[in-house]
Write a protein that binds this DNA or RNA. Structure first.
Length: 267
DNA sequence: AAGTGTTTCAACCGCAACACG
DNA sequence: ACGTGTTGCGGTTGAAACACT
């Protein structure tokens, strides 16, 4: 007997599915996702396997040829840090300033590293407070520390959300809070962390990224008019970055896949 | 080597915004 | 103006990979 989860969750994508998706995105572009899902045969009529939504996500987060894989560079880390302090959890907006990085990637990165930094900080603070135990001033001064931020029942939820602006409607409010109403924001914490990490590194953001006058050559996420050229069908590079898993020969099977799918798909 | 805890990241979900008839 | 379908976003989950004991 199938569980609900097995029925609804399709799980990881197979190479074959990826290939199919890439083929059809190449043919029809990265827009009509529901159409692509159906026509490619990834979404079988009446069944709920790979929906258009699911296809889009797979493409955007994994298959897109312009994606950078591998570790974030220090510059990217700093940029994420700065932009998050500015915009809060507006991941897609932040991602647009980091060419080749997805909102999902940045979100995951933030969550992971935020936790790590918070823990490091917590440790550092408990070490220092042991020498001046009675002067635990975080609550007395009204400035919550990472420790206190984290110490809600579920722990991480709070610090994950504390980046500042979480919704558009709260933006102004958050900006007010940043100006000191609430005191010690996550922004402040991050700034301290950043300062302690690398005092000499200049801001990547400064003079390069700005909402209006961005002179950084952020390439628009390539609309896949099948212009992959040398980027097409990427693979593992020397540094171990995961690249597109198909060898060029497999491109030729693309035609067959498309033809077969078009013949069998319920349109 | 085995067991356990932690981290990482792909994938899913729900909702809101948007496009279009 | 309204209904319907699609797309995009942020939050959450689950499983694999990794680290530690």
């Amino acid at each position: 007997m199938k569980t609900v989860q097995e029925e609804t969750r399709k799980g990881p994508w197979t190479e074959q599915e990826d290939l199919q998706l890439v083929c059809f995105v190449g043919l029809f572009g990265d827009r009509r996702w529901d159409f692509i899902a159906k026509v490619s045969g990834l979404k079988v009529a009446g069944d709920n396997n790979r929906t258009g939504k699911s296809c889009r996500l797979r493409w955007v987060n994994y298959l897109h040829p312009d994606l950078k894989r591998g570790k974030m560079t220090p510059q990217e880390e700093r940029l994420v840090l700065e932009l998050h302090s500015k915009w809060g959890n507006r991941w897609s907006r932040i991602a647009r300033k980091l060419p080749g990085r997805t909102d999902n990637e940045i979100k995951n990165y933030w969550r992971t590293h935020m936790r790590k930094k918070a823990q490091e900080r917590k440790r550092a603070m408990s070490a220092s407070s042991s020498s001046s135990s009675s002067s635990n001033s975080s609550s007395a001064s009204g400035n919550p520390t990472v420790e206190s931020i984290q110490s809600t029942e579920t722990g991480e939820e709070s610090f994950y959300d504390t980046g500042g602006i979480t919704t558009v409607s709260t933006e102004q409010k958050s900006e007010e809070l940043e100006k000191g109403e609430e005191g010690y924001s996550m922004d402040d914490i991050w700034k301290e962390i950043a300062l302690s990490e690398d005092k000499n590194m200049t801001s990547v953001y400064d003079g390069c990224y700005s909402e209006e006058g961005c002179n950084f050559s952020c390439p628009p996420m390539a609309s896949p008019s099948w212009g992959y050229s040398s980027n097409a069908l990427w693979h593992m590079d020397d540094e171990g970055n995961k690249l597109f898993p198909f060898v060029n020969d497999q491109l030729f099977s693309c035609y067959d896949i498309v033809r077969e799918s078009l013949l069998t798909a319920e349109l």
